[in-house]
Amino acid sequence: MTALLNMDVLLDELEQGLRSQLREREIEAPVLIGIRTGGVWIADLLHKRLGLAEPLGELDISFYRDDFSRIGLNPKVKPSHLPFETEGRHIILVDDVIMSGRTIRAAMNEIFDYGRPASIILATLIDLGSRELPIQPDVVAQSLSLTATQRVKLQGPDPLRVEMRETQS
């Protein structure tokens, strides 16, 4: 199944989807934010493809997760780094995989603590469905539906590839 996912094709898909979103919404100078770690890898490539002037933002949502009282703190948390003002800006938020939608909720909460953006466009490489929150990406490169024992993970950054695995349930 891994062979079906060609990274260049997926990135083309994301780039075209984003370009048409930006055109439709008449957005001239968006800023790009990737969610660690996989989202940053994808965002970095999109950043080059879109030729954005401002540097890439990186978000570590560990402090915003909604499951602290169940699983505690991520011991490998790193500082978020948004090297631009977010107030009033059009933001493209990028993650590798969307499933429950909880990571995106956490990321949006964090972004708002830096200031009130004008808008957020969500782009994800892969959509696995199984949403638990009313959050939908604006641009998706590939939708997949997995069986209960299948897992998908982005490996990278170089080479970047999507890995599918069977796990014991």
Partner: peptide
């Protein structure tokens, strides 16, 4: 070292407009 690394992330929080995270 983990304590120092985690503290580094909180330093960044202290430099934001809203210096607050919802952990506790």
């Amino acid at each position: 070292t983990d304590i120092l690394d985690t503290a580094d992330s909180f330093i960044e929080v202290g430099e934001r407009t809203i210096k607050k995270v919802p952990l506790l």
